[in-house]
């Protein structure tokens, strides 16, 4: 049996170090080793996206990556996106617009959607459907997921606009 490897990850802002078999898949590291059970397993063949996490700025299906490959990188899961005291606008929007039913796809959906909105802050419905096509939902028929993401985008853009206004005001004040 091959030696265990020394693996270092930063998960949701926290450094983690451990020894693991090279074949340990990142999804199991997260779920079973680190007890981060937000990312789920739906297919294991990189089709469903339930296991989606963000790794160094990329949306990745963590069932198709070894923990060893991720060593040295930063991983963000749904748990790192927002909690009870700092909900992400996407989390609010999914709740508000009934973007989930059984909730099994939801962590992967929202995690992917955070990245989608970074890539494209003003997506059309078509952009959303195309950009979310790596995530399967069996319950919702997607219509309300699309709606939720649109609503979150609007909310985030409005917040960005008002905060840049605020920043703008400050510079004006400073200039005065």
């Amino acid at each position: 049996m091959p030696d265990k490897m020394h693996i270092k990850l930063n998960v949701n802002g926290k450094d983690e170090e451990f020894l693991a078999e090279p074949r340990e898949l990142l999804i199991y590291t997260l779920r079973e080793r680190l007890n981060i059970t937000g990312p789920h397993i739906g297919c294991e063949t990189s089709h469903c996206g339930a296991c989606t996490v963000t790794i160094d700025g990329k949306s990745v299906k963590s069932c198709t990556m070894f923990a060893a490959q991720a060593s040295g990188k930063s991983v963000t899961t749904i748990e790192g996106i927002g909690g009870p005291d700092d909900l992400h606008p996407l989390q609010e929007a999914f709740k508000e617009h009934h973007g989930l039913q059984c909730g099994y796809c939801t962590p992967g959906m929202i995690t992917r959607a955070t990245k989608l909105l970074e890539e494209n802050p003003n997506p059309t419905e078509e952009d959303i459907r195309f950009g979310m096509a790596g995530n399967i939902c069996r319950c919702t028929g997607y219509q309300n997921i699309v709606k939720s993401i649109q609503a979150a985008a609007a909310e985030m853009n409005a917040a960005a606009a008002s905060s840049s206004e605020a920043v703008g005001n400050k510079t004006v004040e400073a200039a005065e």
Binding site: T37, G38, I78, P84, Q91, K95, H98, G103, T106
Partner: peptide, 20 residues
């Protein structure tokens, strides 16, 4: 609005494979 959604949207659902 659904009361279930708070936990699901925060990755705090408790599905059988989450049991340890």
């Amino acid at each position: 609005k659904r009361v279930e959604d708070a936990r699901f949207t925060q990755g705090k659902g408790n599905y059988v494979d989450d049991i340890k």
